[in-house]
């Protein structure tokens, strides 16, 4: 029936998970500007949470297009529940999802380890920095301040959307739900042969 692209099951599951993260994204907003006035970009360490939908959805469903869809859906969810950043989150979501997707595509959607999701988190960080460059004139910050901003954001992204996302999915695997989601792998066939 739906031969090309993602099946309804994949899309629905991705969107539902993403909306959960959309609410997290929304709650993250006040937290972000609560730590922001502390100065010196401590806020950037938690920025990485806004990339997590893409990596978690990809690790769970393991299909092309899922990361992009998840990040866009999470951004829409955040937007619809009334994000402080308004429409801008849709564009950020689109670009962050796209960059994460490109990382997964570069590995031909064959790797699902902590290194590849960390790379995807780095990809999303680059996307967010590109948009900030145009929107926030971040190149006009004093150089030490800009370096601090960029490195804090990268570190936060790797810790939250790379390492933490990976351990979250590992924990979800123990509940058994992931068996519902993933296409049958080679190991499954091998185990039948025995």
């Amino acid at each position: 029936m739906q031969t090309k692209g993602l099946k309804l099951t994949d899309v629905l599951t991705t969107v539902v998970i993403a909306i959960v993260f959309g609410i997290v994204y929304k709650v993250w907003g006040p937290l972000y500007y609560a730590v922001k006035p502390l100065g010196l970009h401590i806020d950037q360490l938690i920025y990485g949470m806004w990339f997590i939908a893409a990596t978690v959805a990809y690790l769970l469903i393991r299909k092309p297009g899922v990361a992009l869809l998840a990040e866009v859906a999470a951004a829409s969810g955040e937007f619809l529940v009334g994000s402080e950043w308004g429409l801008e989150v849709l564009l950020y979501g689109l670009l962050q999802g796209l960059f994460a997707e490109l990382v997964f595509a570069a590995f031909r959607y064959k790797r699902f380890d902590v290194a590849v999701v960390s790379l995807a988190a780095i990809g999303s960080t680059v996307a967010s920095l590109v948009l900030d460059f145009y929107k926030g004139y971040i190149d006009q910050l004093a150089w030490w301040n800009l370096t601090l901003l960029i490195s804090a954001r990268f570190v936060g992204a790797i810790v939250i959307s790379g390492l933490f996302a990976y351990s979250l999915v590992k924990a979800l695997e123990k509940t058994g739900v992931t068996q519902l989601l993933r296409p049958t792998s080679k190991e499954d066939y091998d185990s039948l042969d025995q």
Binding site: T9, T13, V15, V16, I17, V20, L172, L181
Partner: peptide, 20 residues
């Protein structure tokens, strides 16, 4: 997150099957 996500995934699966 674990209970919320796992329940959401199960629910999404059921809804998709029902829709189809």
């Amino acid at each position: 997150a674990i209970p919320l996500l796992s329940q959401s995934i199960r629910r999404a699966q059921r809804i998709a099957v029902a829709m189809e």
